[in-house]
Nucleic acid binder design. Structure first.
Length: 561
RNA sequence: CGGAAUGUAGCACAGCUUGGUAGUGCACUAGCUUCGGGAGUUAGGGGUCGUGGGUUCAAAUCCCAUCAUUCCGACCA
């Protein structure tokens, strides 16, 4: 492409409404432009990158035996009512009325519709397995879009669905797509971790996430420094260590004004690990008090799973008043009027500090035998330094962006959508489903987060909108432009279209633009063009290499393989 | 949805406190000089100051409302 006659622009300054590096660079490079909160235009360069990512995904999905189709975005609400998910999605689903006053929604994910499509083919066990996928725009009305393309309200997702006779079949189909995902993210050069995760609103038996590792990530990845344990914080566990102290006698002590666990620990000169704190929560309208070690956080996912609750919030004063709990000094000794749930870990602690249910007092040297509770379970988050549940090594954290997710769904959707097949005995059986997603724009953003420097983006060669940039220093010089033109023609003939900067701009501007938009290779045609010499440099190089025109062309060809 | 901030030319911003002719840099047009790392200079073009209302002789500036965007939280496959 010749820049002089093309739609091409860059911005010299960062936009004022974009915080993330990937968002800033993609906007400055003219890849994307925000049209409203969480909704972006993909401009010519951006579309090329998107297409390159899609090409890799298509190739690997086809290799895994999946067939592409295309679903509508606009769907009658009824599908999601049938599956019971209309309420789960709630206001994060875009909804509108058609002219007959029928409620339509913009699809946030398509398990229901794929089950319907699969039903057109699947009648007998002989029709299985089936594997289908699509690249399609999804809509989710996020409460808070942010980080450029990372959390948006409209985005292109590759979503795939598998249909099998039984769990063994599902395992096999899941394995194929799982391997395809590894191939995809390897080929895209994403630095990623695969972690175990919560199944969330999807439901089902198993969820694993492909997480691009970057500090901007919104998910916390729990990793072991000794084995390959990898898990999303929301479902991570750890081994408990028994406190070896002798049990002492519980004693009431005055702790005036110490209503936070840090105050208490400081006042008593103790580590917060020797304390147990109370969290007064509202679980579906009922007061539930949780006790966990003082330095830990409550894990909402685990709590909802344990209690079977739907919604978790902090309890208000009115709700707290239904029990004898004293806010700031709540303890599990003689607590009544509410449900009391104790973290599993507390059972392994000795001589800890807890609230005394009395303003200004705590108990010290409390032990499990001193307290009463209704339920025990794993309800807290792991922290760095905890013991790995697999190998006994130590746990550390990284941050990740969820770029892919795989689910073993089981029969939840097939039953809801009436997707059954007849087995060899002639009886009806629900089809066993799996679902698999990759966020394409999000992957693009994650790549930029992982591959940039102070000058701009550094695309992997196979993802870059153009693999090579061709800069002619003085476009008005007939010798230089003739050499550049020749290189342009030859590379095009070889199937490698260069980004040819033939603008009447100063050299510095051209170099800066090539670096900002992240073109992986650059050929510069300058003073020595008359001697058949040009300069070659990779985006990651710090210096030019002088070579002949032929050498430069061959180098580009080799690096494009 | 709670808390905070911002909205002025294509982009980034100043002006607002203390009301009185709409400003700067980049970008754009024309000229001259320059020409291998975001040039210099001269002359220009481009504005419903987010929107609606109010106060005032007079509002970008003060007041009220509203919309949009961003940040912190809540939420989130």
């Amino acid at each position: 492409m010749k820049l002089n006659s093309s739609y091409f622009y860059t911005l010299r300054e960062n936009p004022n409404d974009e915080e993330s590096v990937s968002g800033q660079l993609l906007i400055r490079g003219g890849y994307i432009k925000k049209s409203s909160s969480g909704i972006y235009m993909f401009l010519p360069l951006g579309l090329k990158v998107l297409n390159n990512i899609e090409t890799v995904i298509r190739e690997e999905m086809e290799k895994a035996g999946s067939q592409e189709l295309l679903m509508p975005c606009l769907l009658p609400e009824d599908y999601y009512i049938s599956s019971g998910r209309r309420d789960n999605f709630g206001s994060s689903m875009f909804s509108l009325k058609d002219r007959f006053n029928k409620t339509m929604v913009l699809g946030p994910t398509h398990e229901e519709l794929f089950a319907v499509a699969a039903g057109m083919k699947i009648h007998s066990y002989k029709d299985l397995p089936v594997s289908l996928y699509q690249m399609q725009t999804k809509f989710r009305d996020e409460p808070r879009p942010r980080f450029g393309l990372i959390r948006v309200r409209e985005f292109i997702m590759k979503d795939a669905y598998t249909f099998d006779r039984d769990l063994d079949g599902l395992d096999e189909s899941y394995g194929k797509i799982f391997q395809a995902y590894k191939n995809i993210f390897d080929r895209l050069h994403v630095d990623y971790k695969i972690v175990r995760a919560d199944t969330g609103v999807m439901g089902g038996l198993l969820s694993e996430e492909f997480q691009a590792v970057t500090p901007i990530g919104e998910d916390t990845l729990v990793l072991c420094d000794n084995c390959d344990y990898a898990s999303n914080l929301e479902v991570s566990t750890h081994l408990y260590q028994d406190d070896q102290e002798e049990e002492k006698e519980m004693t009431l002590v005055a702790t005036p004004g110490c209503s936070s666990i840090n105050d208490v620990a400081t006042f008593l000169k103790l580590d917060t690990k020797k304390t147990v704190k109370a969290l007064l929560m509202n679980v579906d309208g009922k007061l539930t008090i949780f006790f966990i070690r003082g330095d830990r956080d409550l894990n909402e996912t685990k709590v909802l799973k344990l209690t079977g609750g739907k919604e978790l919030n902090f309890a208000n004063d009115e709700l707290i008043a239904t029990s004898n709990a004293v806010a700031g000094f709540t303890g599990p000794v003689g607590l009544t009027g509410c449900k009391v749930i104790v973290d599993q870990e507390v059972l392994h602690m000795k001589n800890f500090v807890v609230g005394a249910n009395k303003e200004g007092y705590h108990y010290v040297n409390a032990n499990v035998s001193d307290i009463s509770y209704d339920m025990v379970g794993d309800i807290s988050n792991v922290v760095e330094g905890d013991i790995c549940p697999v190998c006994g090594g130590h746990i550390h954290f990284k941050k990740g962006i969820e770029v892919g997710n795989t689910f073993k769904l089981g029969t939840k959707y097939s039953k809801a959508m009436n997707l059954y097949y007849q087995d060899s005995n002639g009886t009806q059986q629900p089809v066993v489903m799996g679902s698999y997603g990759i966020g394409i724009g999000r992957t693009m953003a994650a790549l930029v987060e992982q591959n940039h420097d102070e000058n701009g983006i550094i695309w992997p060669v196979n993802i870059a909108p153009y693999k090579v940039g061709l800069v002619v220093i003085k476009a008005s010089d007939p010798v230089q432009s003739a050499v550049a033109e020749k290189i342009y023609e030859e590379l095009n003939a070889a199937g490698i279209e260069p980004l040819y900067d033939d603008r009447d701009e100063r050299a510095g501007v051209k170099f800066k633009d090539m670096e900002l938009i992240g073109i992986p290779m650059r050929i510069t045609v300058g003073k020595l063009a008359g001697e058949n010499k040009v300069e070659f440099r990779k985006r990651t190089d710090s210096e030019n290499t002088l070579m002949s025109v032929e050498e430069a062309i061959n180098t580009v060809k080799e690096l494009c393989l």
